[in-house]
Design a protein around this nucleic acid. Sequence first.
DNA 1: CAATTCACTTTCATTTTGCAAGTGAACTTA
DNA 2: TAAGTTCACTTGCAAAATGAAAGTGAATTG
Lengths: 136, 136
Amino acid sequence: MVNNSEHCRSHCPINFLLEALGDKWTLLIVRDLMFKGKKRFGEFLQSDEKIATNILAARLKKLEENHIIIKSSDPESGSMRLYQLTDKGKDLLPIMLEITDWSAKHDALTNTPPDFAERLKTDKAAIAADILAALE
Amino acid sequence: MVNNSEHCRSHCPINFLLEALGDKWTLLIVRDLMFKGKKRFGEFLQSDEKIATNILAARLKKLEENHIIIKSSDPESGSMRLYQLTDKGKDLLPIMLEITDWSAKHDALTNTPPDFAERLKTDKAAIAADILAALE
DNA sequence: CAATTCACTTTCATTTTGCAAGTGAACTTA
DNA sequence: TAAGTTCACTTGCAAAATGAAAGTGAATTG
């Protein structure tokens, strides 16, 4: 869908990411999935940035359409929906770590812990491995 | 300005980047500055994605407010304005390269040349050095 | 079986976007 | 030197996206 030429503005790689993730909210959902262990609609709502329910629903739908997340039912309780990163979604990890690195450097008020920011500079591969392991 | 707590939604590092660059257009301007040697208003207008003049003016202003670019006059012709990346802007390069890597992998129609995509996987530091050198 | 929780959907006012046209300063041509 | 032309924007307006709040329906709990 994102890949057909009528829909896309171009096939520049920067633009390709923007078509899927280029707005103020989508990457925050990826962050919650990747770093905070969140998996449910209600959990995403609780983040500091206070996303509205309609925007969250729209973004989850688009992420699913772009195969960055998959939606399933919680095996333990039929009602609850679970959202999880696909392999394509997990592949965003290096981007997320570089973003964290940049913001830790340029935001004087960053909430990135100093020791994590330091480890990020020297040990990115090990951090990535840890985070991927935590996602199973 | 972006750093004051009334304005920002949070000081999460992912959010910090989104506050400065989180929309469908801003990163394309950074791309043009970083990879395509573009420096002038009229040059940004010519990209494939066809940004409107009012949106371009607004994004350039915001990038300047966030100290990601600086605006100056062309020393050779008094009238023309030049836009250039600051050090903070150049620090976005690792993010841009990771984005390129991700899109080259996941966009079947990517216009990233295969040899560049290959070199990106093995030789990211050398590519980064080349690009920074080209920016002076 | 009534109340609550969860995951959305709908409504609607406000904000942002995008196209087109307009403006003004410098520069080029007749 | 007067008349375009180019460049870098700004303005106006219709259309689309956003955000707050309320509503809906399925499951779960008391």
